[in-house]
Design a binder for these strands. Structure first.
Length: 200
DNA sequence: ACAATGATTGACT
DNA sequence: GTCAATCATTGTG
């Protein structure tokens, strides 16, 4: 599926994770619009990537959505507390996904503050995968839905701004120490110096 | 049916 | 730096 000029059915999920930086992630729930610019991502590339939920071709009720054609959401509950948002990518039956780890808040900052805590500083609203989901009210209700704005979804991505390669840093993914040699892959991308990134 | 666990966060020493 | 929260999902029997 083509979403916002981005071909999310491309098989190169690592390049896609880079390309998604600068796009705007939006939710509109109950007439409340919140959005932010994507400033940190990670690529997950099943079946070979041991860090992926679809590692080794695992196909279950939860992971089925990762095998869909690119362009839909994959939201799951982590540690029983936090919802994490992914962009499913790759052709049908290719289980690739892009975890969105941080946003630079744009619209609805006061709504985000209501959801996150009234005394939360702007920099702490969306600087982590669980935090941004709370700020945008991304829950399991938004799992497995199209990210095309035209489809009438309550959640979508759209072009925002462009970051030059000179400002993009590649590094190891966060929190995947269990994944043997796959934890060494430089499949995390973030905008250098951006104050809304989760881990510098 | 049961036990283990996690792509995190916030509170605390 | 340490640690607990909290539960859907998963593998195992």
């Amino acid at each position: 599926m083509i979403v916002a000029n981005l071909d999310l059915t491309d098989t190169d999920v690592v390049s896609l994770a880079r390309a998604v930086l600068g796009y705007r992630l939006c939710t509109n729930l109950g007439g409340r619009l919140t959005s932010g610019i994507i400033v940190e991502t990670e690529a997950y590339r099943a079946p070979e990537d041991k860090a992926s939920h679809a590692y080794n071709g695992r196909k279950t009720a939860r992971t089925n959505v990762i095998y869909r054609p690119g362009g839909v959401s994959y939201v799951y509950l982590c540690y029983g507390i936090h919802h994490l948002f992914n962009i499913v990518s790759g052709p049908k039956d290719v289980a690739h996904a892009i975890l969105v780890r941080a946003l630079q808040p744009e619209s609805g900052i006061e709504i985000m503050r209501e959801r996150r805590g009234l005394n939360i500083r702007d920099k702490q609203l969306t600087n982590g995968p669980g935090k941004l989901s709370q700020a945008l009210d991304i829950t399991l209700q938004l799992n497995d839905v199209s990210l095309n704005r035209d489809s009438g979804s309550n959640i979508w991505i759209e072009p925002g701004m462009e970051f030059p390669d000179s400002r993009v840093i590649r590094s190891k993914r966060i929190g995947v120490d269990y994944a043997d040699e796959w934890k060494e892959k430089l499949w995390r991308f973030h905008v250098e110096g951006n104050p809304y990134v989760s881990v510098k």
